[in-house]
Each structure stands twice: as C-alpha cells, then as structure tokens.
Simulated assay, not measured.
Amino acid sequence: MNRKHFLSFMAMAGATFPALKSFGSSVIPEPATAVKIPDYLKAGDTIGITCPAGFITMAEILPSVQLMESWGFRIKIGKTVDRRDFTFGGSDQERMLDMQNMLDDPELKAIMCARGGYGAVRIIDLLNFDRFVASPKWMIGFSDVTILHCHLSRKYGIASIHSKMCNSFPSDWTLADPVQIATILSIRQALSGEQLKYIAPPHLFNRPGKVEGVLVGGNLSIIETLAGSKSDLKTEGKILFLEDTGEYLYRLDRMFWNLKRTGKLEQLQGLIIGGFKVKPDDPGEEFGRTLYDIVQEKIKEYNFPVCFDFPVGHQKNNFALKCGVKHSFEVNSNGSSLTSLY
C-alpha cells in the first residue's frame, strides 16, 4: 500500500471500526498522588523510536511510523534503528547513548521501544534519568522493556505504557483482523489519556473480588531476574499483572516460588495472569502440573481477587496497560474487568 493510500485509509479507521470505541472513551484528569503521570499526548507531539534491546530495520518499523503519523504525532527515529551488533540493536554504548538522548530530549513526549528481545538490562545502570524525572515522558513497550517499567516504578514512581511495539504493527492495515486493530489502537488511546477498560471471560480458577490499586507488572522472567536489584519491583498494595512465553512449566513454578519467597504476593491487591505460552515438557521429564496448579499453590493463603487468561502478553490480544496508574479490578461470575482511573 502506498503512503497516500495508507494514510487515507487510516483517517477513516474510526468510522470503519466503531466497536473499538468501547476500549477508550473520555479523557481523564491526573490524580493528586505521589505517582508521576507524564503529560498525555496531543496532535503535533513527538514520539521517539529507539532499540534498547534487539535489532530492527527501518523497513520493519515503517508501518508503525506511518500509522502513528496518521494519528497526528510526529516521529523521531533513533540512531539504533537499522543498527546491528549480532542480536542487539547496536553495541551497548550505541543503545545507551540513543536511549539517553531520548530521555533528555525536551521535544519528545513519549519513547517507543522498537522491539523486545534482550539487552535493556545491559544498559539500565548506565542511564541518567535526572532530566527525564524532571520532565517525564511515556515509555512504551513490553517483554524485555519490563526492565524499564520496573525501574521507573521502583526508582521514580513514574507511569509508563506496557504495550505492543513497532514490530507488532501490521504491514498492511487492510488485512489486519479486529483484535490486532484494537490492540494497536489501544496504544493511541493510552497515549491520549483515554480511560481504558478491558474485559476477560469467566475462568474456572478465577477468584472473585473488587479492589482498587496501582497497576504494575510485565514479563515474569524479567521480574524474577530483577529481584534484589535497584530495579526490583515493589508490589505491596498493587495490582500485579504477569505474562511470559517459551518457558517450561518447571521454570514457571520456580519463578512463582521466587515471587512468593521475596514477598511479592503477600500484600497484593489483586493478581492478573495474562498470556503464558508454555514450552512442552521434554519426553520423560513431565512436570505434572499445569500453570493453574502452579499459581493456585502459591496464592492459596491469600485472599486477593485473581483472574486468568487476561488479554496481555506475547500474543495477538496484547492490549496497552498503564503501569503505575491506579485501576479498578473486579472479578465475578461474569468474568473480570480492569479499568484505568486516571
């Protein structure tokens, strides 16, 4: 699709897919709390794109650039796009400098990580967040970017957006299915300050309840590796969401034991289990327990509400979530719902 046709099509997206409006409606005010919520974006604001982890090409990010420009945003592409150092988007030094420039850039209102992979942990302690803290901007991404979400939450109490990245935007919007479209549009809704509400169907192992709390979380294996570090996630009084991919069940069991032994489950307001793509057991090494068995064993002594199969994770139905923002979370016989309050 040429650029003119693409942008013309996108200008009609709201009319073509009216059902997507249910995922975001009114713009909501910032709370008078200690949590720092960056300014929501408006037309003309600039989003930077950088690669703190894996590599990606300019051709691969072009659909995301075109779409975000059609939303009215300007895009500044970092120097690490099209760079490659084996699996990384450039050397550690290149990735650190590119992210540092974006953290410090007063023109930017948001930073979108181009893709996940591995590498953010190699540069996180080299970054200076002084200017970023003085003038926060939205950090966007998931998977390996969980390191940045956790660091911003633990060290600075700054909200961020857990969502798909440039490598998840469809190359041809006209061929994208409704779920893919809705998840991408949820990024715009989150950046624009719309209230986000997501609903998951009932699940046999859900635990009912209704609570409010600040939402934190991300990739389980990343959260486990941050335990005891300066980026270690604090969960007391929070609603915790978790997802992961490509892990054996025994490894997931070990990770959930880590959450329990480090006290991360003791004082939760609620627990949200998103998508988990489990790696099949090796023949003769069957673990003998399901993901649901693993989770239930670790939380049986606690009373907070729990939901399973929430639409977040390494899957098509991976919707944008505002980390560090207060949410309402309800689980009942009809399913579960998560609603941003700011």
Rank of each mutant, 00 (worst) to 15 (best):
N2P: 01
R3Q: 11
F6L: 15
F6V: 15
L7G: 00
M10N: 03
A11Q: 11
A11F: 03
M12N: 04
A15S: 12
T16S: 10
K21Y: 01
S25F: 10
S26M: 13
A34Y: 01
A34R: 11
A53P: 05
A53S: 13
G54K: 11
F55E: 14
I56K: 08
T57E: 01
A59M: 09
E60M: 12
E60V: 12
P63D: 08
V65W: 02
Q66R: 06
S70R: 07
G72V: 12
K79S: 15
T80P: 07
T87F: 12
T87Y: 11
T87R: 14
G90N: 12
N101M: 14
D104I: 11
D105K: 09
A110N: 00
A114K: 08
A114H: 05
R115Q: 08
G116P: 10
Y118G: 12
G119S: 07
A120I: 09
V121Y: 05
R122W: 05
R122T: 05
D130T: 10
G141R: 08
S143K: 06
D144A: 04
L148K: 04
L148A: 09
C150I: 05
C150G: 03
R154W: 03
K155H: 03
K155W: 03
G157Y: 01
S160P: 08
S160T: 13
S160H: 02
I161P: 00
I161S: 00
K164S: 10
C166M: 13
L175A: 14
V179C: 14
I184L: 15
I184C: 15
S186I: 11
S192F: 10
P201A: 13
P202G: 02
H203L: 10
N206Y: 04
N206I: 02
V211A: 04
G213L: 10
L215V: 04
I222Y: 02
E224V: 14
K230H: 07
L233F: 02
K238Q: 02
E243C: 13
E247L: 14
L249G: 03
Y250Q: 13
Y250P: 04
D253A: 08
M255E: 14
M255Q: 13
F256A: 15
W257S: 14
W257M: 15
N258M: 15
N258L: 15
K260A: 06
R261S: 12
L265N: 11
Q267G: 04
I272A: 02
I273C: 10
I273R: 00
F276T: 15
F276N: 11
P280L: 04
D281M: 10
P283A: 08
G284T: 07
E286G: 03
E286P: 00
D293H: 07
V295Q: 01
Q296N: 08
I299L: 06
I299P: 00
K300I: 14
K300F: 12
E301W: 03
F308R: 08
Q315I: 15
C323S: 10
G324W: 01
H327W: 02
F329M: 08
F329Y: 13
S337L: 06
L338M: 09
L338N: 01
